[in-house]
Each structure stands twice: as C-alpha cells, then as structure tokens.
Amino acid sequence: MKFFLVFIISWFSIAYANEAQDRTNSITKNLRCLVCEGQSVYESNSDFAKDIKTFVSKKIKEKNTDEDIYEFLISKYGEEIILNPDFSNKFIFLWIAPILFFLIGIFFIFRRSNEIR
C-alpha cells in the first residue's frame, strides 16, 4: 500500500509541477471547461475558458493560495468545475472499488492454481 502511495504522490508531483507561470497551468488543467466537451480549462479556447484563465492568473498575482482559488470557483460553479477527483469521501468508492475488483479476481485465479491448492 505504501508503494502505491509513493506512486500516487510522485504522479501528482508531476501533474502539479511548480514553476511561477506553471501554477496557473496546473490549476487550469484541473478545472473543467463547463461549456466544452470533455476538455479542461487549460486546453480550451472558449471565452469561458479564457476568462477563467485570466481570472486564475490574476488571483495568483494577488497572492491567493490554490485552495482559495478552488474554493472561490466551487462557490460560483459547483464541484463539477474541479476536473480531477481527490481522495475525499465522495470519491472513495471510485478509488476503492477497482482495487476490490482486482483482489477478488486474483483470489479466483489463485484458487484455480495447482500449487496453491
């Protein structure tokens, strides 16, 4: 389990690389363009996405933390503007269920194997 945590943390550290300008990018990559189809704000060219991009970079210049920005946008647009799920309660099933699925499968395969029997 610890092993997986290392994975996940290193993965996130890539996704949220920290360079000055890149902070805007990492935030907008994690925001869903609500008027587009399956794109993040970062990827989209729509007016909506452009506004959010401008807004986020302005907020960063005003020394707001990432949390402040997320919180503000959630209060305006709802949770669905956050593109990527975290490990909070409402997503727990999303992370746990596949692992359970896999473990049950492994159990069945091992039960079939000669050596183990």
Partner: peptide, 21 residues
C-alpha cells in the same frame, strides 16, 4: 452521484493514477 444531487467530474488524472501501476 448526480442521483444524489452531486455534480462532479472525473478527469484524466484519475485514470492515469489508478491505471499506471
């Protein structure tokens, strides 16, 4: 989740994180 009146998105980071290992 929309049945429970929650609106959320599941983006690429979810798939990448859980599938990679």
């Amino acid at each position: 989740l929309s049945i429970f009146d929650q609106t959320i998105s599941v983006g690429p980071v979810y798939y990448n994180t859980i599938l990679a290992p």
